[in-house]
Amino acid sequence: MKPAPFDYFAPTELQEALMLLERHEDEAKILAGGQSLLPLLNMRLARPKAIIDINRITSLSYIHKDNGSLRIGGLTRHRMIENSAVIQEQCPLMTEAIQWVGHIEVRNRGTIGGSLVHADPAAELPTVVTALGGEMKLVGPRGDRTVRPEEFFVSFLTTALDSSEILAEVRLPIWPRPTGYSFQEISRRHGDFAVVAVAVLLLLNDKRECENSSIVLAGVGPTPLKAKRSEGLLTGKKVTRELMEKAGGLAAEDSDPSSDVHGSADYRREMVKVMTRRALEEALAKAMQNAK
């Protein structure tokens, strides 16, 4: 339960970190908050030759509001996002969901970039970023590129990030103010990874019909799962209890969960049905409230 030896680097500039990454090719790992990497090192599931600690690149920690979007630096810690008034005001789904990430000790240290790059399909942040329609800004030796969640999350613990790149920034579009939202999760213990989680955004038009919605599931497949058929079902319709039940049923059908010690595949699928409906109900109640 001790890491294998490695060389340690603590650059203070992003460019320096990129050079170090390139020099070590596939043998280096970026250390951000360390709340996923350190357990892997301790258990020797990962044995990198070099650790490039980016915690001293303080320019990667920020929350900015631009025209219509929020920009969050890759090294921004969960706790800073949790306590951010701007996030609470512009992206309350994030504020709600981030309280489910680990425990306070983990949130004091863990970073948004680290969580996204780790890409655990049961984790909250990949789910929320997918639901919001966010983008990841990746910086590499040959410049920047921007990647959408659908391309970024490839499979279990696998992303489109190249071994020479660093996730420098997350951009989240600001949804219109009347948007209703909900984040629901079941886990064995608060703070543990989700058995199943659902993030929902729901925007109504003047006639109180669904104008736009986003429904994303965690813990039911190799990546966050966008329940497209459920979203499509709601579009342009009055969101009745019956319709929400149906949307939950479709989401369950589209889920592909596996069985483990925390719950069987059947249990997870049943929970997707129930929780999608509950999340829609909560989001609808908020959207109605906001429409008043």
Binding site: G34, P39, H103, R109
Partner: peptide, 21 residues
Amino acid sequence: GACTALLNGQSILSCLALAVQ
């Protein structure tokens, strides 16, 4: 949670941080 210490006033898990950090 047994290894919790305060780093600059904030609670952290000391088994998930390196001494050099």
